[in-house]
Computed example of a mutant assay.
Amino acid sequence: MSINEQLNSDLKASMKAKDKIKLGVIRGLKSQITNAKVDNNNEDLTDEQVGQIVLKEIKQIKESIAEFKKGNRDDLVADQEEKLKLTEVYAPAQMSEEEVSKVVSETISEVGAESMADFGKVMGAIMPKVKGQADGSVINKLVKEHLQS
């Protein structure tokens, strides 16, 4: 079942169950998907494109949580964490940190990187390989660790 089909199915279920939080999350995702579809000349989006939209939403929620924590708004943090859990259900499968570390090592060898000066070259080579499968901050951290050692 595609992400879009899953969203439609869960939308109906959450409407029947009167789950307002889940309904809001799903409607928000569907709205972003519709906007992307319009930007794509009304052509259907691939699962990969829909996955990118979901990952972008997850990133925004995580940023909101960080900002609310800085502002000591625990009530809003709890709301956003609930929203994050519901949104992560639709995210494409992510690589483990060990798998990302292996890709980082291979890429560093491929491009012949030796120091932090080669950081941009390594990141540029890695990102297309793991697009949508790993968080950029994790990749960034691992590349720095590998280049510093």
Rank of each mutant, 00 (worst) to 15 (best):
M1R: 15
M1E: 04
E5I: 14
L7K: 10
N8E: 14
N8V: 01
D10G: 05
K12I: 03
K12H: 08
S14Y: 00
M15W: 06
K16T: 14
D19I: 12
D19A: 01
K20I: 02
K20D: 00
I21A: 00
I21K: 14
K22I: 08
L23S: 11
L23M: 15
L23P: 07
V25R: 01
G28K: 05
K30S: 11
I33C: 10
N35Y: 05
A36F: 06
D39R: 00
N40H: 10
E43N: 15
L45P: 10
T46C: 03
E48P: 07
Q49D: 12
Q49K: 10
I53L: 00
L55G: 14
E57N: 04
E57M: 02
I58K: 06
K59L: 03
K62Y: 00
S64N: 09
A66G: 09
K70H: 01
K70I: 08
K70C: 05
N72F: 07
R73N: 02
D74E: 15
L76M: 14
L76S: 07
A78W: 00
Q80P: 02
Q80A: 10
E81I: 06
E81W: 10
E82C: 14
E82A: 15
L84G: 08
K85C: 12
T87M: 05
V89N: 05
V89C: 04
A91I: 01
P92M: 10
Q94Y: 07
M95D: 04
M95L: 11
S96W: 07
E97Y: 06
E98F: 00
V100E: 02
K102C: 12
K102N: 06
V104L: 15
V104T: 15
E106L: 13
T107M: 01
T107Q: 02
I108Q: 11
S109A: 06
V111H: 14
G112F: 07
A113G: 05
E114V: 12
E114I: 10
S115K: 15
A117V: 02
A117L: 14
A117Y: 00
D118I: 12
D118W: 10
F119S: 13
G120I: 15
K121Q: 11
K121G: 12
K121A: 06
I126D: 01
P128W: 03
P128H: 13
K129F: 08
V130W: 02
G132M: 11
A134N: 06
D135K: 06
D135M: 12
G136V: 11
G136L: 02
V138Y: 03
I139G: 02
I139E: 00
N140A: 11
V143H: 05
V143F: 01
H146E: 13
L147I: 02
L147P: 12
